[in-house]
């Protein structure tokens, strides 16, 4: 059990090392001739106007909220699926009721027009 997590932990440490190595090699090999024109923001030849970090469309936020509700639901459903053999039929039906409550939430969001994009 602990050995399994040891492997995952080592993987979390080792996995970034390969890309980091791939970024260090060009520092040694690649030419470095910086120039103000070269580092300009690329917009197909047109100079960029104004700041980039500005307010953006609020609808992305709506979708993120709906996603959050469903993601939390899924996290709760995983233990339910694993313990399936120990559950009586009643437990399964309660789990499905839990899903349906969220489906009602989805229908509400749908009717409210949150899922429309304009």
């Amino acid at each position: 059990m602990l050995n399994d997590w040891l492997f995952v932990g080592l993987m979390l440490v080792m996995a970034p090392i390969f890309p980091i190595a791939a970024l260090i090699i060009p520092r040694i090999l690649a030419p470095k001739k910086p120039n103000p024109l070269k580092s300009q923001t690329y917009e197909c030849g047109i100079e960029t106007v104004g700041d980039t970090w500005i307010q953006f469309k609020a609808q992305y936020y709506n979708f993120a909220l709906v996603f959050l509700v469903f993601d939390v639901e899924i996290v709760f459903l995983f233990p339910w699926a694993v313990a399936f053999n120990q559950l009586p039929l009643y437990g399964v039906i309660v789990g499905i009721l839990f899903i349906e409550v969220l489906v009602i939430g989805l229908i509400y969001a749908w009717r409210k027009g949150i899922l429309e994009w304009f």
């Binding site: 791939a22 090699i25 060009p26 520092r27 090999l29 690649a30 030419p31 470095k32 001739k33 910086p34 103000p36 070269k38 580092s39 300009q40 923001t41 690329y42 980039t52």
Partner: peptide, 12 residues
Amino acid sequence: KLLIKEDITPQG
């Protein structure tokens, strides 16, 4: 080829 390409960081 990718390893010997110049690395450009955009301004800002």
